[in-house]
Design a binder for these strands. Structure first.
Lengths: 216, 216
DNA sequence: TTGTAAACTTACGGCTGTTATCCTAGCCGC
DNA sequence: GCGGCTAGGATAACAGCCGTAAGTTTACAA
């Protein structure tokens, strides 16, 4: 019952292996929980078949572990979108694929999407007394990367002659908020009569003048 | 230091007064925390100047207290939007006002907005052993009310002659996801170069054919 | 005076992040 | 062969939080 750790200890030079297993365990748990603050050091240790203090051999504190996982997840997300875009023939198709990939990632990994982009409640000002200087939230920086990649994709459409009276930055905000809104509200209200997510974003994208101008 | 309760006890027939004070304290705390699950019975009791078990005279359990607060907040939200709409002269103006009121509520009460519409992480399947049948989440029902009010507002525009090839339900999803996306991403990434929230939603609304047709 | 509403005290069992200390398997030089 | 060193863990414990059940006190109304 007490989940005693039954792992074999790693050999001499291979101490880094536990680090990977901890990140993998934390990744799996975050996919289930959908919230980085709910993740507990002890749950990660249980899943990895290890005692909680062992984690501190590989990560300074809980925040470090979470950050390591978030960094990998953000990398995976941005890579997934970039690869989807790479298979396109023209800028309009590329933008379309990027948007669809965004929705696909959220559909396939809802827990991770929530961890990456979900609303995070503000810190109650020092939950643990002996805290270091606020670790703050690292998601804004990483998430902004996704945003500027979207700006670039839109700019390439404008450069290719897309007709819009707005600049790429504004259009990127418009598209991103829509993508995020679709994903987030669907997760919260799965029982509403939702149309296909792609249908919504495609509609707005073409209305904004970013569709392929094949009929003009 | 120990925050001993210094309240005067309520007189005989006035036991309901504490109930109100508890709801008010919980409301204020939720505005700060932005997350119903972070709210603790003990924190509510501290703020109300009362010991934790006293709460159980007025609420069956924590979930009942939270539900009472959510119900009030949802009512306030829907009333605020309906009143804003009521001051309009035509359906287009009404829809515009409703959207602007949505954004205004979120701007003025970000914590409450998060509690009402923010992404909620899934329950880890029975956090407390001796639990009653899952209380589930009451937000979907209440939130759906807001959605259908939006559908109605859009339908009135279509009835007034708004030109759109989509039905009101689809357009409502389009608008709602955009409104929510704008609000939610702004809360998560406050440092990005955001245009005015109204500018984004107005752009999409008019692109969708729901603007006032004064130039046709 | 007495019943009882309204609140209190105490306590249980659980969770959490983190530290200080200890154990042990295996490689090192000798 | 063998003592020592150290990497890679495990134990035990601290201090804090949590929801809530059981029993007790206080003060007002009848």
């Amino acid at each position: 019952m007490s989940e005693r750790p039954t792992r074999k200890r790693n050999p001499r030079g291979q101490g880094e292996r536990l680090r990977r297993e901890l990140i993998d365990a934390a990744t799996a748990l975050l996919a289930e929980l959908g919230d980085a603050e709910r993740l507990s050091i002890r749950a990660v240790a249980r899943r990895a078949g290890v005692t909680p203090p062992s984690i501190y051999r590989h990560f300074e504190d809980k925040q470090s572990l979470v950050s390591a996982v978030l960094e990998e997840r953000f990398g995976e997300f941005n890579r997934f979108l970039a690869e989807a875009e790479g298979a396109a023939s023209d800028p309009y198709d590329a933008l379309s694929r990027r948007c669809h990939a965004y929705l696909e990632f959220a559909r396939e990994h809802p827990g991770h999407y929530r961890v990456l982009f979900g609303t995070k409640a503000p810190m109650p000002s020092g939950r643990h007394p002996g805290r270091r200087a606020a670790p703050s939230d690292e998601r804004p920086r990483a998430g902004a990367v996704s945003f500027f990649a979207l700006v670039d994709a839109i700019q390439r459409c404008l450069d290719a002659g897309a007709g819009s009276d707005r600049d790429s930055s504004f259009l990127a905000v418009e598209l991103w908020t829509l993508l995020h809104g679709v994903v987030d509200l669907r997760l919260t209200y799965p029982d509403l009569p939702w149309p296909a997510a792609e249908e919504i974003t495609d509609a707005v994208r073409t209305q904004a003048g970013l569709g392929k101008p094949n009929l003009e």
